[in-house]
Amino acid sequence: MRARLIRDWRFWLLVVALLALAAALALPRLTLTRQARDLLVVIDITGSMNVRDYLQGGEPVSRLAIAKRAARNLLADLPCQSRLGLGIFTERRSFLLFEPAEVCENFAAIDGAIDALDWRMAWEGDSYIARGVHAALAIAGSLKADLVFLTDGQEAPPLAGGELPAYEGEPGAVAGLLVGVGAAEPSPIPKYNEDGREIGFYAEQDVPQENRSGPPPADAPSRAGWNPRNAPWGGEPATGTEHLSAMREDGLRRLAAQTGLGFAALRDPAALWKAVEADTRAHLVEVRVDMAGIPAALALIALTTLFGLGALAGRRPDRLPS
């Protein structure tokens, strides 16, 4: 009797299945580590972000809308236990709306907060991007988060002499990246009245074409109507293309180099995660992983083999009883 049982593969397959299931029930959960990130996302909401130079489904879409979409995609792409904080940039300040909070638990609220960003929250028309990035780095540093700064790089008024203001922090102390939003070709900037209605586009003389604070540039004496006391910048209004806005990739790259940040141009709002992954620091968090699946799969294989072979072995007995 016992000898027959020991020779019977069916018996052994059942034993294997039962032992595997017992192992699945007894196996403790493993603690594994996973990469999570703490990010501070700062979105530029100055006027030039209203430029509609993205196309989506044949419709022109503003830079701000694309930046918001990119930030919401980023929020969805972050693994759980990552944290995300939100700030806005306008004038010369980065303004923290909320500190980094866990992304999975607070997804709806953070998503709603990003969606609610609007250029009308801006309090000033100026746009000192370099100072804003410096301020955002200080905030990110104090929060121990990495910075993701979405901007088109349009300085208004333009930097005096094209020089970046000095950065007081230590370059590279805060990791992160600048994300260039906008197309390379210049486009007109929409203009709004005080009720927030669009009333056309900025013309050449509506915006400062030259930064006339600080000492005049070296080439000033060669300008028409120059007078060292009365007209140190020349006698004629500055001309230029500051009323048209393109994504200032060169300026942003220089700023990124100055502050030790990375740079990525935003072409596709869904593709921001790749760049963020490359330029921000991950830290390890512990997740509990259930390993019961492996022995359970073994049990399934054993039972399937048992019944599969049983079915294949034929419905007829091998031999008649003697």
Partner: peptide
């Protein structure tokens, strides 16, 4: 302040609310 700013929509998740309150002592 100079302009109104929506920070968070109504939410049951108080962790993010407290993160927003934590931000108010910034300049």
């Amino acid at each position: 302040s100079t302009s109104p700013m929506p920070v968070l929509p109504l939410t049951d998740h108080h962790e993010v609310v407290r993160a927003a309150i934590a931000a108010i002592d910034r300049p």
